[in-house]
Write a protein that binds this DNA or RNA. Structure first.
Lengths: 326, 326
DNA sequence: TTGTAAGCGTTATCAT
DNA sequence: ATGATAACGCTTACAA
């Protein structure tokens, strides 16, 4: 900047004025400065800028489980849209469901002085965030509630969605319905399991432990579980799978068998083209991201008040696989 | 930091030493400082830090077309993995195939002094980057080459992949093969079109303009085109679609018709479960991101030399839809 | 309209 | 082993 000032024969401050479109500059001076900027290839340093202006980094941090998962990338995209509209850049990171990694990411983001944090929590204890929150960093949790602190959060109606799927299967005549779910320490997995069990109980169907497969962390685990389910002496006539990855595994485990009903939680890109077309519990992932970003932006805008909790509804999309009869 | 120093009864510099794990500090002093840090909830300010240390922001910028597209989110994830290993955070943004948006994003990233730039270019003229490159910001282009400047780039063998797909269809007896492609100003779309035409020419099949649908920007456009193709007096017996979004549209346009062969460029999540299973031109999207990040990291590490150009191979995965006979 | 001086939170340099 | 001081590139407050 001082180089530009020298080249244009003005003071530092005048260059600053030009760069920031402050009005108090003669058109002639402005032109001279702009020429110098062009020639020297000067570009304002936002790092230095935010330092002096009081910690406003104009960035927001996002920690999710895995960007490569369509569920999270849809959320990411929606958040990006909202933040961009406010001139905020987005720093992203994947935690891979590892609490340590989540914490390390959040800390790196805080050191970089992001103005706000959007987190799909992997860990259960977010006490480590308290100092940040007290110091004014806003935080909004997505998809799962925070642990050990109180903060804004936006969730899905997991219990309701899982219950609806299970009820749907029951309504189509199934009584031996298997569950394929992730580790139950993940609240979404837990809630979807509860929804499944609620529906069975309401229909007076005893919960058969043989049919409940939990702790499945990837598609391979789901595939193996489904194979085992099919090998039972009394195999299930229907399967409810708890998320998009597990649904892929379940389909693989079914190996083309179309006689077993299947409903998956999370809509998927080619769901309408599988054989039979895949019935799913769907919801608006983009809306999840959008609302989270909006809540964060409101907090950044100075909005006070108690932490809020928003729950988004799910919809059952019946395409065929969930309507197969026993 | 000065608060911490005061609380611990030491100087600013000593706190800095503790925070940076510099050896020259008595264990006793260190302990005292660390207690003060705990109590005050102090966290190092990386913004100020990078200012003094000479512009090392420890961040890298990534500009892609759309994170919500699985192709790009896979790339993003791989890049994240590489940069994380080097302590670099990733700032991401989607250009939506809009050159202005790409440029605005890149400029915002440069103002924030990212150390390096990873770009899937939307525009054709990257002259605007020259000042940044001269000043030492590294840049690597992904999936498409830069325009008007010379820089490292990692590409896919689009011509080869498209040619292989078309040859495969020809080998299965097709002579009326339709093309469903994006706007040809996008180099990947152009190259895939060239590969398609090459294969036809090599087989002595005249290019029928009725069968060549280009300029399709989304799945809806592809769906409409496929419907029109099927309504021709002499409809195609096979379709080659130029990317994952267009493939979704093509499938929709086919409306369950299984008699028309289909090969898509880009593998997809449920491709193995469609009816018939979807044949695709696949490649390692993660590898694309990984290699790009590695090239960037090498440049950041001071590696000189002429810009490099890496081309990744594609593989034809025959699952069924590409093997349907006319 | 333009310029000067101070300071944002940190690290580098040089003393002690 | 510890500290004083300047400096990073910029903006704010004030002066001319």
């Amino acid at each position: 900047m001082s180089d530009v000032a020298a080249a244009a024969g003005v003071s530092l401050k005048t260059v600053s004025r030009v760069v920031n479109y402050e009005p108090a500059v003669t058109p002639a001076t402005r032109a001279r400065v702009e020429r110098a900027i062009q020639e020297l290839g000067y570009r304002r340093n936002d790092v230095a800028r935010s330092l002096r202006r009081g910690q406003l980094s104009r960035t927001v941090g996002l920690v999710i489980e895995d960007v490569a998962n369509p569920f999270y990338s849809a959320i990411t995209r929606a958040i990006e849209e909202e933040t961009r509209a406010h001139g905020l850049l987005l720093i992203t990171g994947s935690s891979d469901e590892d609490p340590e990694r989540e914490k390390a990411l959040v800390q790196a983001l805080c050191e970089r002085r992001v103005e706000g944090l959007l987190i799909v929590p992997a860990g259960r204890d977010h006490g480590y965030l308290r100092p940040e929150l007290e110091r004014g960093t806003a935080a909004v949790f997505i998809d799962r509630p925070p642990g050990a602190i109180d903060a804004d959060v936006i969730l899905l109606d997991n219990v309701g969605g899982a219950r609806a799927a299970t009820e749907h299967l029951i309504a189509h005549g199934h009584r031996r319905i298997a569950l394929v779910a992730d580790v139950l320490t993940i609240t979404t997995a837990k809630e979807r399991t509860v929804g499944y069990e609620d529906a069975l109980a309401a229909a007076g169907i005893a919960r058969d432990p043989d049919l409940v497969c939990t702790g499945l962390q990837d598609d391979d685990a789901a595939e193996a579980s489904v194979r085992e389910l099919l090998a039972l002496s009394r195999p299930p006539t229907a399967i409810f799978s708890g998320n998009n990855r597990l649904t892929v595994g379940a389909l693989r485990g079914l190996g083309g068998r179309t006689g077993v009903a299947l409903i998956g939680f999370d809509d998927m890109e080619l769901a309408e083209f599988t054989d039979p077309p895949l019935s799913v519990v769907a919801y608006d992932a983009a809306e999840l991201g959008r609302r989270a970003a909006q809540m964060l932006l409101q907090r950044l805008g100075g909005e006070g008040g108690r932490p809020r909790r928003v729950v988004l509804e799910t919809t059952l999309i019946a395409r065929g696989s969930g309507e197969v009869r026993p």
